[in-house]
Amino acid sequence: MLSYALRRVVTAIPTLFVIITIAFFMMRLAPGGPFDSDRALPPEIERNIQAAYDLDKPLVEQYLIYLGRILKGDFGPSLKIRDFSVGELIASGAPASMELGFSAIVLALIIGVSFGTLAALRQNSATDFSVMSVSMIGIAVPNFVMAPLLSLVIGVYLDLLPTSGWGSGELRYKILPVIALALPQIAYVARLTRGSMVEVLHSNFVRTARAKGLRERLVVVRHALKGAIMPVVSYLGPATAAVMTGSVVIETIFGVPGIGTYFVNAALNRDYPLVMGVIIIYAVLIMLLNLLVDLLYAVLDPKVRYS
């Protein structure tokens, strides 16, 4: 299994290279540049700025310069927040995003799996319908509605938690963003769990277990859940990566200092190095988590072997 993991890591390098290449050139296709603003710059000044950031060189040369920098671990300067390098911005934002994302996934797992299991046990009943309806709120109401609503009701009307902001990272600032982040995930996890649980509950080994007279709770927890969790596990890889790299909506509305807004704002600002930086982080994270999921599969399911 170790050699398998190592091989995966090694093959990830060319993949990453392809991703960097695609992203670099795709981004440059977009019209408009980082220094276009409501004040059109005199051509000479624009040339000065472009030269200061090597943007006046041919695109291929810029690409090679970028690759050279990346190999040295330098993500370059941010073109928008000029006092910080991309590395510094990511280092300062990633911990918040990852913490919130991870908490949200854990919360989604706990609630989603319980809801899904409950629904599957009472398939097609009123319980099934209402539990699934509740869990689906997260994908039926856009999060840019849900998040301000939470902040308004809980932050302003009830005054239980701060409306937004980060303070110095106290817990009370994180509760609402985590809930808002978790809601759509709860829906997906509950649905996946319900689907596979229904399937597992009808399978032979569960029938056998029941026939042997095991208590229902034991059957569900010990046997069925272990089988039913597999699709959830494979969903978790990409989902965790996506949630842990932050969300532009949640971060904007709750003022979270994460890196999620950079995916959108840096692209809209044409802050090329920052866009590249977050894309690389995302790609690395998703590959890492997919590997983890595959390894977890081997642990959960003895039939799966990697060599």
Binding site: A30, P31, D36, R270
Partner: peptide, 10 residues
């Protein structure tokens, strides 16, 4: 988006 708008204005 703003960048395209102003680039085209220019």
């Amino acid at each position: 988006d703003g960048k395209i708008h102003y680039a085209d204005l220019k």
